[in-house]
Write a protein that binds this DNA or RNA. Structure first.
Lengths: 137, 137
DNA sequence: GTAATTAATGATAAACAATCCCAATAGGGA
DNA sequence: TCCCTATTGGGATTGTTTATCATTAATTAC
């Protein structure tokens, strides 16, 4: 019985650690939806001893708290975004970068499904795939 | 420069091997979008010496040839479907199973994007997340 | 039918993302 | 300042997929 949702337990109280602040700052400073590896590199420049596990853990905690937004991309590392309104994404199949789609969110999209066979829908995501401007040359 | 699309090279001619036929048969016999591990188990019952690598390779080749459809699910193994018309999916966040969404495909969905900044869109996918009927109890 | 060509296979190693484990550390309330 | 426990570091581990390579076997040409 596979559990696919992230199993980060958020305790009743959270603490403000230097590492967590640096992770949040890194996500906010980076655009193009950084991966955990991107975040790790930036944070390590300021805090060389930080562990990869700490970066992963804090990205998970910050995502649960709603301070960053996790984009779960098929076939690639998760990506993180600092703005939190639901939106859709473009993924370049050449370089792997992820961009925000400039189109309105459709909260009622699931209404178009005629029969869910009892499936309870909580959210949806749309990913457009193609080739970004830089990779077309 | 990460390459995220599958790098299975399809030669000019392909051969009809027993293993490939068994892999195709397994995908066709299984519903709920089997993973490569599911396919491997079924095929191994008929052909005990098959290698996992062969299953992966053949799923890739069959997907490229259009004989099976690959569903690239975020945060989980790829899943395979034997019917090939574009459609959307429901993914249970508890058991990880993937179901087909009973809703029409929207080939012109990308037209709703006002500005792609030169991004060339080739396809899109929609994944609805929630809890399936079985996992609600 | 036989030989030649090369796609495909099996087994294993490796790449990659992400999580688990656990002893040590440190944040923050009392 | 003391205590509790959230958090950390670092390495081990899991899970999925691809790469490598010597060997096998499917197809083509003869």
């Amino acid at each position: 019985m596979e559990i696919t949702s992230k199993q980060i337990k958020v305790p009743t109280s959270t603490r403000n650690t230097v590492q967590r602040a640096l992770v949040l700052g890194a996500v906010q400073s980076l655009h193009h939806h950084p991966t955990s590896a991107d975040v790790y590199e930036v944070v390590r420049a300021q805090y060389p001893n930080i562990s990869r596990a700490t970066v992963y853990r804090n990205l998970g905690v910050l995502a649960k708290k709603g301070e960053v937004f996790r984009v779960e991309v098929p076939n690639g590392a998760d990506r993180y975004d600092f703005h939190n309104e639901p939106h859709y994404h473009l993924k370049c199949r050449v370089c792997g970068r992820v961009f925000d789609a400039d189109m309105p969110h459709m909260p009622n999209l699931a209404d178009a499904i005629t029969d869910t066979h009892g499936f309870h829908i909580e959210a949806h995501q749309i990913i457009f795939e193609g080739v970004c401007f830089d990779c077309q040359s």
